[in-house]
């Protein structure tokens, strides 16, 4: 592998996250590369989602949650007291496990985020671009005024992705985006993720190891440490993690010995 200058999109440094007294994730150092897909895998309850939500401060919606350490975004720690979480979330978008379109029209689902974020350009164009970007335009272009909830699960999830890219984030966080979908819909989303990675940095949590192997460039393996806290066990290029991991635990997990 040639030595080239790789740009970082976001980086966690010594990050620990707590729910009240319980430390859910402990001292994670994780570097996320620009315009690549980073997968977070690991057994259930090891804090994968918590880690993901740390990148746009979504954990703060749980009243008892708090963080220690740094998350650097363009050199700025997003946990600094002068940082506005709302600003962070405008740059770091999120797609959730269960498709959750707003009970509004398809058009408004996409346009709403742009509108509250003060978008001044042509809204129709933005909606069309975003829906095309999420590879759902052809399916919905004739029924933009229909309720978003009337779509199928896979379409709903792509609508949610369209809605996220409409606000032009740098990074898209995906929290097991395919776990509620059938295999065909999953395939669509995976193809879409590869296309999106040309313009966006994607971090995806998945417990489907084939999916991580198929779509991601880098893989972070989380495991349960002492006191049931999540730790970053191993991080590296996906090929390496899946073929020749440094740690025995990583290999055990990937080959299905536990998890």
């Amino acid at each position: 592998m040639a030595k080239k200058d790789i740009e970082l999109a976001i980086e966690a440094r010594n990050l620990s996250i707590y729910y009240g007294d319980f430390r859910a994730v402990t001292e994670v150092n994780l570097k996320v590369v620009q315009n690549k897909i980073t997968a977070i895998i690991g057994p259930s309850g090891c804090g994968k989602s918590t880690m993901l939500r740390a990148f746009n401060r979504m954990n703060e919606l749980v009243p008892t949650a708090w963080a220690e350490g740094e998350v650097l975004y363009h050199g700025k720690n997003i946990y600094d007291p002068d940082v506005d979480p709302v600003e962070v979330r405008r740059r770091v978008g999120m797609v959730f496990q269960k498709p959750n379109p707003f009970p509004k029209s398809i058009y408004d689902n996409v346009a709403w985020g742009a509108r509250v974020n003060g978008y001044k350009g042509n809204m129709d164009d933005l909606v069309e671009q975003s829906l095309k970007g999420a590879a759902i335009w052809d399916e919905v272009k004739d029924k933009l005024d229909q309720n978003g909830l009337s779509l199928s699960g896979g379409q709903q999830q792509r609508l949610c992705i369209a809605r996220t890219i409409a606000i032009k984030p740098d990074i898209i966080l995906m929290d097991e985006p395919c776990s509620a979908l059938d295999p065909i819909a999953t395939l669509h989303i995976e193809e879409l993720m590869r296309e999106l990675s040309e313009d966006y940095t994607i971090i995806i949590v998945t417990h489907n190891m084939q999916q991580a192997a198929r779509v991601s460039d880098y893989t972070a393996f989380f495991n349960l440490g002492e006191g049931r806290t999540g730790i970053l066990d191993e991080f590296g290029e996906t090929d390496k993690i899946f073929t020749n991991p440094d740690h025995q635990t990583t290999e055990d997990y990937i080959t299905g010995r536990f998890g």
Binding site: M1, K3, K4, D5, I6, E7, L8, A9, E11, K31, V33, Q34, L72, H74, G75
Partner: peptide
Amino acid sequence: TETITSHT
């Protein structure tokens, strides 16, 4: 870690 160096 060597190659991944700079923030934009």
